[in-house]
Nucleic acid binder design. Sequence first.
DNA 1: CGGAATCCCAAAAGATACTG
DNA 2: CAGTATCTTTTGGGATTCCG
Lengths: 139, 139
Amino acid sequence: MDIVAMDTETQSEIVHDKQSCTAGVTGIRDALYVLNGKWKLPLIFSLSGGPMRFKDIQRSLGDITPKILTKELKELELNEFVVRNVFSTTPVTITYQLTPYSQSLDRVLLELKDWGIKHRQRIVASRKSRGIKLSKLTH
Amino acid sequence: MDIVAMDTETQSEIVHDKQSCTAGVTGIRDALYVLNGKWKLPLIFSLSGGPMRFKDIQRSLGDITPKILTKELKELELNEFVVRNVFSTTPVTITYQLTPYSQSLDRVLLELKDWGIKHRQRIVASRKSRGIKLSKLTH
DNA sequence: CGGAATCCCAAAAGATACTG
DNA sequence: CAGTATCTTTTGGGATTCCG
């Protein structure tokens, strides 16, 4: 019994009673619920440089198929992260642009991006890297 | 250098030439590659309070099945986020605990958690909330 | 308790082709 | 260019049962 003991807790700076823990888990699950999947976060990040056209987004993400991109864009529209603009040029021009609300994700994106970059460096530098997951980018 | 300035990018504080954009997309995709799915981030967050046993993790996440939890824990072990401890008590006791490396995710987790909490508040407060995605927590 | 085994379904994602 | 349409494969995830 109580083998786990009440020690070990000194490591974490974060307050972590059961209340705040489940609240935290809920927060993270809520976030992931709208930002799920392989593409939404990269897509939002890509758009954070300014409005882009369909084909340009596709290129910037590397290898997403149009079908998936269409679906992701629609979901992001529904959740008010993205707006679709239609310009009556000939031929018609369409751009996708982030909403102000999506800027609330800036810090998340920044932290995730930095972490990913460092993680890649760690894996590449490590001799133990065999068998450890790392995506086969960059195309 | 005036990197940001050369075109119409004045709106974004983030430097966003094509180079750094694809680098950023790659970073985010690398991060998501190891942290994919519905459970890994909530799981890591949950463990950040200290070592936990299988059943306790399961409870803290609400509704994950043992099969999925086993799979997620193994993947996190492979990627050196989690360590599995076996204590030779009777019956045997097993705990899972975060590695030091997983602490590099603290800021990501923090930002994501905060965003998720604010997002939920926004959805709940909004009259336009119908049709907008929000997970049906908390149990 | 800490899982493993099996079965099953739905969703995610990819390939390819095609259209206005 | 900006998507649709189809088809297929893969994965994620849930339910249930069982075991030491």
